[in-house]
């Protein structure tokens, strides 16, 4: 039998995984904002350089990454509301799991609605 050398991963439920997703999406959004602030600030330095940078974003890879960005922001924002409800609403702890699935459903539906529109734009020309 293959014996795992390390300890097992803790099998937490949706509360734990929502926290993990919240952190990962948060770090991802931070790096996007960092790049976004830098490239937008470039317009003050050199409008030509700014144009070159923005033009370089128009590739399918960045297009797909934008899809991920929309999903991450939606999840992070909605789950943030869920965390606020847990802290400030007296029944928040009782319904945390239900609220998590609401967050996931809204995120998935919104991203699914956005995807065809966005992909048509990315691959359209």
């Amino acid at each position: 039998m293959a014996i795992k050398p390390a300890g097992t991963l803790y099998r937490g439920k949706v509360g734990m995984w929502s926290w993990v997703l919240h952190r990962i999406s948060g770090v991802g959004i931070f790096f996007f904002l960092l790049v976004h602030v830098l490239d937008t600030a470039l317009v003050r330095v050199s409008p030509e350089a700014y144009n070159i940078v923005i033009e370089s974003y128009k590739t399918p890879v960045v297009g797909l990454a934008e899809l991920g960005l929309v999903g991450a922001i939606l999840f992070h924002g909605l789950n943030g509301l869920r965390v606020i409800a847990i802290d400030f609403w007296s029944k928040g702890t009782k319904y945390q799991s239900v609220m998590f699935w609401v967050v996931i459903t809204v995120t998935v539906v919104a991203v699914a609605g956005f995807t065809p529109m966005h992909l048509a734009r990315v691959f359209g020309h």
Partner: peptide, 9 residues
């Protein structure tokens, strides 16, 4: 506390 609910579970 980051409300992961592992403790409650």
């Amino acid at each position: 506390c980051r409300t992961t609910f592992n403790c409650t579970e």
